[in-house]
Design a protein around this nucleic acid. Structure first.
Lengths: 133, 133
DNA sequence: TATTGACCCTGTACCAGCTACAGGGTCTAG
DNA sequence: CTAGACCCTGTAGCTGGTACAGGGTCAATA
């Protein structure tokens, strides 16, 4: 049943160093050790690590994951706080999305019509340095 | 004509510490100093700082900005390398954009239908912890 | 003239979220 | 019995700044 840190990492698609890092910052509890001082993980840690990994993949910050874990441990608690964290996060994602779309538009405007001439006539450089234009 | 670091920062929409940081990492040359050891900037530095600021705003990395500055200093050089950097960057932006769109789709799937019940029945937590489902 | 307050200086430490060593120990297969 | 894959701790590095601490300078005002 018990797995090593390497197996846990492989099973959750993380790196060994990352698992140790999560332990250090208190996301993952310190597991028992074997005689040779190896970390020995059970099913609960595997589930917790999967949860962390999935939440991180979805872009939740480490602090948001910490909050989600704390809230999810309290089974009697109210789902509303969890919902609030998720909605805050989706709002952040939508803001970033809007920023990137604006950025792409500007970048494309800058890039148009470089015909490979000399730098002195480069439109990209011109577009980047409005004070010289 | 000569401006202080504070004026340069205000004129380019940066912070004083950031200007000093750019000098430290070699993006902006170290300017002459006044008798009181204050940095004294001229028009060239202002133009360079504007360029840096605009390129950073457009999401170019510091190393990309460094390369663009190096290339743009060589007026006889070929515009093609500049074009390549810009196209690489726009490709990165489009990749990030696609990632964020996928992320938003997944997040929204996770969020649907939280009715404010107990955490034990929270669909968000369920969606995040596939191993428990 | 003295003193405030806004500005400037250097140097260092800190943020997120890992990642990459260095310099060891342990375990397993051949 | 030895090679190699794995594990351990601890520390330093990455990006792109930001935030002090502990001072110095300069212009205006009382």
């Amino acid at each position: 049943m018990a797995t090593t840190i390497g197996e846990l990492a492989r099973a959750t698609g993380t790196k060994v160093e990352t698992v140790r890092y999560y332990e250090r910052i208190g996301l993952l509890p310190a597991p028992p050790r074997t005689g040779g001082n190896y970390r020995s993980y059970g099913a609960a840690e595997l589930a917790r690590m999967s949860f962390i990994r999935r939440a991180r993949d979805l872009g939740f910050s480490v602090e948001q994951v910490r909050a989600l874990l704390g809230l999810s441990d309290d089974k009697q608690g109210d789902c509303a706080s969890i919902d609030a964290i998720a909605r805050t996060h989706v709002a952040e994602v939508e803001r970033k999305l809007a920023d990137l779309i604006a950025l792409r538009r500007e970048l494309k405007a800058v890039i148009t019509s470089c015909k490979g001439g000399a730098v002195a006539d480069c439109r990209i450089i011109e577009a980047l340095a409005p004070l010289r234009g």
